[in-house]
Every structure is written in structure tokens, then in C-alpha cells.
Measured scan of single mutants.
Amino acid sequence: MPSETPQAEVGPTGCPHRSGPHSAKGSLEKGSPEDKEAKEPLWIRPDAPSRCTWQLGRPASESPHHHTAPAKSPKILPDILKKIGDTPMVRINKIGKKFGLKCELLAKCEFFNAGGSVKDRISLRMIEDAERDGTLKPGDTIIEPTSGNTGIGLALAAAVRGYRCIIVMPEKMSSEKVDVLRALGAEIVRTPTNARFDSPESHVGVAWRLKNEIPNSHILDQYRNASNPLAHYDTTADEILQQCDGKLDMLVASVGTGGTITGIARKLKEKCPGCRIIGVDPEGSILAEPEELNQTEQTTYEVEGIGYDFIPTVLDRTVVDKWFKSNDEEAFTFARMLIAQEGLLCGGSAGSTVAVAVKAAQELQEGQRCVVILPDSVRNYMTKFLSDRWMLQKGFLKEEDLTEKKPWWWHLRVQELGLSAPLTVLPTITCGHTIEILREKGFDQAPVVDEAGVILGMVTLGNMLSSLLAGKVQPSDQVGKVIYKQFKQIRLTDTLGRLSHILEMDHFALVV
């Protein structure tokens, strides 16, 4: 994948999101292997301009796509893939009243899908469409860049269908997702969380590099694949309309690839034109409109599966009536509230959605109805927002919020430890010299600072030695090549209790 991002070429006709291997024109390309080798690009942008032909009021008969309808489940399912879809609609009884809503608040519980998330729908649909058009064949390999849930859905379907599955996901995604993927037989590649989507090191860039190296491999490409919004247009939206008897006044959905909100909203605009569509985008993402909503100094966020630093091709923002931004604290607070007060075992993005819903639905009156999409299960986040310690460490809970008995030293300040200034190293000294210094002084790690004293990161003896043994660096290389740029900081005025929580999850903390 090139470091400079080429513009994806656009073909003359058809839909841009065809499933299957992508040609340089962004659509299915038939021909000899030699032709494909000559024409197939190194990668295709996940934010390529959409060429979708959908228009409100256009006859369904003019759609270029294969459409399906929700099917009634048999008493005995032939395999677990038949437990994807037909998820329950559940009334939220307490939270709406707590925040003064007059309307009825309903939750579409997508964590009841077989793999635990709304992404099971698009995973199965992308595979079925690729099999139907002859792209996927027995023994082929599926590769997908994902925040985890699409990966789980694909790995689940691949396990049943017999495909090899490789999932490329950023490091910030939970260990629970990784464990589930491994249990399903998927191979996992992790990428830096802070890598831009168009960087060769991003999950998108690495996935395309693997595709170019592995024979008979395919990126189904949830960011561009029409099967993504079509899955929701054909099934999720129809289920909502049936469950609500066609009567709903507002739908609120958090947005990642945009397939969920695009597919549902398009069908609702056709069948229930008075329904307002509300999009939820986390602070630090750029999906919301108008652009002024996205202006923030924050560039990272903890909530998973929603928000991006690019506009995915499948996201149709014209069908969203209003956007709201959400933050991590309210997302996790509301997710825990949904679990504790409503018994809905949902993930953090569901918290984002409901946090926005109780604001947006203030305009609705008694007798009206708001539906929220709860995308995934708490299963993926047992060591994250479900953990009091994690919430404390991230600053989303305060010590006084917890009532468990603490040891005698818990409320003492870090400054009472009488710490001395640490050994520091410059980023320009060599790895070999740094190892000598650390061994001589008896230290395992040291902060790396520039000549102005600005902290650049941390270097550890173990990481340097393993990097040297693996051949990633040489003793003569500058130590700046092996620094940890993500590390926890703590102030002298913070409590030892807070430091204790940090050290339970990290090997060190830097006192500043």
C-alpha cells in the first residue's frame, strides 16, 4: 500500500459497493488471473465517493441489488447463522422517566444476534452475496479491517462455511474481542490505534497488504460494500417497522461504517417519512454534520465500534436529520445504567446512543415513540467499562463513588512517597548505550525526554532486548525507535489509591 493515498477510480455505471474482489474501477472485475494482476490496485480507499443510485421515491424494481426479506425461524435451526436477525424490541421503562421523557422509549437489542452484535447481519450478508456472485469459493481466505464486531461476525460465518479468516484490528480494541476471535479460529493482526486510516500501518493498510500477498484472499470491505446497508434496509428496518406496527417518530443510532443508519433510515424514509433520524458520533470522530460539531482538541476516545477519521463510502449522511456528539463518560455511564436499571447487557456504544436519545427525544410528546439501536453486548468489555477499576483509572468514576473498604494508605498523596527525580535518556542515544546505562543503574525503564525536557515516551529494558533479539533494531539504532509513546501519567497530588489502580493494569506510571 502506498504512503500517498491515490484516488480510487470510478467506473461508468453500476453501484460502487459490489461485493467481491475490487477492480481499479471499484466494481467486480472478471477475466484471467493475468488481467486481474495487471488491473487490481494495491488498495482502494474506504472513503471513495459513493456511486449508489438510491433515491427517495425511486421504484424498488430499479435497484441493481439482490434483495432479501426477513424469514421466520424454524423450530430447529440448521446452523447458528440462522440465529442472525429477528432481534427483540424491548421497552426501556426507567431511564426515559428518569430523564423526563414523555414518549415511549424502545430498544432494538442487536446483541441477541448469534455473534453478539449488529455486525453479524452485514457479515453474513457480505459472505452470502460474495458466494452468490462467485467471488468467494471453498478454501478462500477472508481478510477484514475491523474494530472487532464485524470480525467476530465474519469469523463466526467463516467457521460454519469453512473459510480461512484473518482479522486486522487496532490495538485499542478489547482483549475479549481478541479472545472470541481466536476461539472462532480467526487469525488476528493488531495495528497502532493512532495510525491514520490511509497510513500503511493502519488496520485498513495492513489488511490490503495481506490481501496482495495471500492468494485467493478477499477483503469484503464493510466500508464500501453495498451488502452492509442492504442488510439493514432489507431486514433490520423491516423488523423495526413490523415490531412497531409502522408507528415510530424517531430513530437514534450510533454511527461507525454508517451501514446501520443508512440502511434503516432509507427504508424508514420510504415507509415512515415523518420519522426523524438521529445520528450519534463520538467526540474525536469526524462523521457528524455540520462540520463545526467535529471541532475539538480530542483525537482519541475509548468507546469502541463507532466514529472514524474518514467518511466511509457506505455512509449516506443525507438521510440523517440531526447529529449529536457523545463523550466517553456519558457513554459508559449510560451503558452501566442500562445494565443495572433495565437488565440490558449492552456495550458502550449503546450507552452513547441512549445518552443522546434522552436529549433528542425531549421534543417528542406522549403517545409518540423513539427507537434506539443497541449494537453489541457487554461480553466484549468485561475488563473495560464493566470494571470499576478501569473506570477509575480512566477518570470516568471517582473514588467516592465506590463504597468498598480501602487499605490505610489509600488516600495518601503520591508526594508522600518522597520520590527522587528519575533517570532520563535522550532519544538520540543508541539502544546499546541505553541498555548499558539501565543495567549500570539497576533500572528496568526510563523516560525519554528531548533537550527541552519534554517527555516523549518510555523505554524499557525488556522491550529493547526483545527488539534486538527479533532483529527489529540494532544496538547502533537510536533509542527513539523503541519508545512507548502511550503511558499513564500521575500527579504528586493524586492518591496512592489512584496509582494502585493504574499499576494493576500497566507496568509503570510516570509522575509529573
Rank of each mutant, 00 (worst) to 15 (best):
P2S: 10
S3R: 13
E4L: 08
T5N: 15
T5I: 15
P6Q: 15
P6V: 04
P6W: 05
Q7G: 09
E9V: 10
V10A: 08
G11M: 04
G11P: 01
G14C: 01
C15S: 07
P16K: 15
P16M: 07
P16W: 01
P16A: 07
H17W: 15
H17R: 06
R18K: 11
G20C: 01
P21Y: 01
P21S: 13
H22V: 14
S23N: 01
K25A: 01
S27W: 12
L28H: 14
K30C: 05
G31Y: 06
S32L: 08
P33A: 06
P33Y: 01
P33D: 08
E34A: 08
D35T: 11
K36G: 01
K36I: 15
K36A: 08
A38G: 09
A38L: 14
K39M: 14
E40R: 05
P41D: 01
P41S: 11
L42W: 01
W43D: 01
P46F: 04
P49Y: 01
Q55E: 10
L56D: 14
R58K: 10
A60D: 01
E62Y: 13
S63R: 07
S63Y: 05
H65F: 01
H66C: 11
H67N: 01
H67G: 06
T68W: 07
T68F: 11
A69C: 10
P74K: 15
K75F: 04
I76V: 04
I80E: 05
I80S: 11
L81E: 15
K83V: 06
K83T: 09
G85H: 10
G85Y: 03
M89W: 01
I92C: 07
N93T: 11
K94I: 01
I95A: 05
I95V: 09
I95R: 06
G96S: 15
G96Q: 04
K97C: 01
K98V: 10
K98F: 07
G100E: 09
G100L: 04
L101P: 11
K102P: 04
L105S: 01
K108Y: 10
K108G: 05
E110L: 04
A114Q: 11
A114S: 14
G116D: 11
V118S: 08
I122N: 01
S123T: 06
L124G: 06
R125V: 01
E128H: 01
E128M: 14
E128F: 10
D129T: 08
A130C: 07
E131M: 05
E131C: 01
E131A: 10
E131N: 14
G134D: 14
T135F: 09
L136K: 01
P138W: 09
P138S: 11
P138I: 01
T141W: 15
I142F: 06
I143C: 01
P145M: 05
P145V: 03
T146K: 10
S147Y: 01
G148D: 10
I152L: 04
A155R: 03
A159E: 11
V160F: 01
V160P: 04
Y163K: 04
Y163M: 07
R164Q: 04
V168T: 05
E171G: 01
K172F: 01
M173S: 09
M173V: 05
S174K: 01
S175D: 07
S175N: 09
S175I: 14
E176G: 07
E176Y: 01
K177P: 01
V178F: 11
D179A: 08
D179Y: 14
V180N: 01
L181W: 05
L181P: 05
R182D: 05
E187C: 10
T191Q: 01
P192D: 09
S202L: 01
S202A: 09
S202C: 03
H203D: 05
H203C: 06
V206W: 04
V206T: 05
A207R: 01
R209Q: 13
R209F: 06
L210V: 05
L210W: 01
L210I: 07
N212V: 09
N212H: 01
E213R: 15
P215I: 04
S217R: 01
H218S: 01
L220T: 04
D221A: 01
Q222W: 01
R224G: 10
N225D: 01
A226I: 12
A226Y: 08
S227D: 15
S227I: 01
N228H: 06
L230C: 15
L230H: 15
A231C: 15
Y233K: 01
Y233I: 01
D234P: 01
D234C: 01
T235F: 13
T236V: 01
T236N: 14
A237I: 01
Q242I: 14
Q243T: 13
Q243M: 06
Q243D: 14
D245L: 04
L251A: 09
A253V: 10
G259A: 06
G259L: 01
G259V: 03
I261H: 05
I261C: 11
T262R: 01
A265Y: 07
K267H: 07
K267D: 05
L268F: 15
L268Y: 01
C272L: 10
C275P: 04
